[in-house]
Design a protein around this nucleic acid. Structure first.
Length: 411
RNA sequence: GGGGAGGUUCCCGAGUGGUCAAAGGGGGCAGACUGUAAAUCUGUUGCUUCGGCUUCGAAGGUUCAAAUCCUUCUCUCCCCA
């Protein structure tokens, strides 16, 4: 149990920590409760949300007890940390829906069955709050002067900061206090952008409860190429397969920059540290094998092995031919429709490969469109049954975007 | 409440009556090079039945013609109270 912190350090989940020796000793004493905060602002988690959950999973494996705090109350406010824009306000009803759909996603990494993990919602104590009482009991412990020295607020002072956002720190601190009181939660962990809020919570607990608690942050995960983690051209990489297909999810990891392989293995899989290092150390085309493994491991973890195999085989089939193609994004088209012939632009623009006909036109003109690996450069071209191979059309846009058209007898 | 500055295409940001679907950069897409990597270079980047159509916070108005001028509204930021 004493190695919980070491695990986090080894795997790159350690940026800074308050009173490290103290925390180490506390964790060595026995199972401790800790929490992370998640914002249920969307119906699905995306990769960006995952790092704290992975960190929690490691601590849980080390015997500690995670509390996953859904910010059902705070989701209605904006967190000023780093963000430039205020968040949209959403209804409690929507938030509850989001929580319901996010929980199973969290459960992929956190074991809720063993009863030592807990899902909480801060709306439980934030919603009934009385403004006057809150100001008197909690607000008085916060110094505006001190808050203004926090980096998060400094930045926002340039761009503008609403009072409601300014209050975020108080609410988050209050969360920590409530969890300490209700569950004896003694540790809050989070991304490094949460450092200020975490420390503020600890200070609050120290003042009103005269108790010592701890905070730990991990580095914000970035990509070596500077792109936002988990962001694709189309937006965030969601865990919900209806928002991001398993195939696309797999491909995201498959195409990660070389320099990130080791770190991503450490962060997003549970493979032994030694193995992660070896896989990340591979060079040349070997690192490609590592990426295949990375993609498979992460996909299997979050979507299940069956889906991962399908995505992996689908990708293999698309890139090197043969094999099981069912994992590739696809759509059905009736044979009779194809018999009549479909214009190449119409064909591409009705798939997810092209958003509009203009885009399809561009693609064709630039030589990026292929049907069953035959380059089509004529925008007037018609595709019909004679182009089908094995009862399907494999569309390819550019070098690595595929789409499969399945031909069916019925319309 | 008073005064000032602004809201431009995915983002940043030019544009102040026609030559503006709108500079430049970022991002995206495509091509070359590769390893389904990175870096680099090139092209491209509103929609379209290819006739046009819709875009510059919103609604009106002036004009042959507006992102550009006028009016009202709305939102943001700054200064004063």
């Amino acid at each position: 149990m004493s190695d919980a912190l070491d695990v986090l350090k080894q795997r790159g989940f350690f940026k800074q920590c308050t009173d490290e020796p103290g925390l180490r000793a506390k964790l060595a004493e026995g199972p401790q409760k800790f929490y992370i905060g998640l914002d249920p602002t969307g119906p699905s988690l995306h990769i960006g949300h995952l790092v704290p959950i992975y960190a929690s999973a490691h601590l849980q494996k080390a015997g500690h007890q995670p509390i996953i705090l859904m910010g059902g109350g705070t989701a209605r406010i904006g967190d000023p940390s780093g963000k430039t824009e205020m968040r949209q306000m959403i209804s409690y009803e929507q938030i509850d829906k989001n929580i319901a759909s996010q929980k199973p996603q969290i459960a992929k990494l956190i074991d809720f069955d063993s009863t030592n993990a807990l899902l909480a919602n801060n709306a439980d104590w934030l919603a009934p709050l009385n403004y006057i009482d809150f100001l008197r009991d909690i607000g008085r412990h916060f110094s505006v002067n001190r808050m203004l020295t926090f980096e998060a607020y400094k930045q926002r002072l340039e761009k503008g900061l609403s009072f409601i956002e300014f209050n975020y720190q108080l609410l988050q601190s209050y969360d920590f206090l409530e969890l300490f009181r209700r569950k004896n939660c003694i540790l809050q962990i989070g991304g490094d952008d949460q450092w200020g809020n975490i420390v503020a919570g600890m200070e609050l607990i120290r003042r009103v409860e005269s108790a010592e608690t701890y905070g730990l942050t991990f580095p914000l995960v970035t990509r070596s190429d500077g792109k936002k983690m988990g962001k694709t051209e189309k937006g965030a990489l969601f865990l919900d397969p209806s928002l991001t297909s398993v195939y696309d999810f797999y491909q995201y990891w498959r195409n990660v920059p070389d320099a990130d392989v080791e770190r991503f293995f450490l962060t997003f899989t549970f493979l032994p540290v030694e193995e992660c290092r070896n896989l990340g150390a591979a060079e040349g085309s070997d690192i490609n094998k590592s990426k295949e493994r990375l993609a498979y491991e992460v996909t299997a973890l979050l979507h299940g092995e069956k889906e991962a195999v399908k995505a992996r085989d689908g990708a293999k089939a698309a890139f090197s031919g043969g094999g099981d193609k069912t994992g590739i994004p696809s759509e059905k088209i009736g044979k009779t429709e194809l018999e009549a012939g479909i214009n190449i632009l119409d064909l591409f623009s009705r798939t997810s490969l092209c958003a509009s006909k203009s885009e399809a036109r561009r693609l064709v003109l630039q030589g990026g469109a292929r049907v069953n690996n035959v380059k089509i450069e004529d925008v007037e071209a018609f595709i019909d049954m004679t182009d089908a191979v094995d009862g399907e059309l494999m569309l390819k846009a550019g070098k690595k975007r595929f789409f499969r058209i399945e031909l069916t007898d019925r319309e």
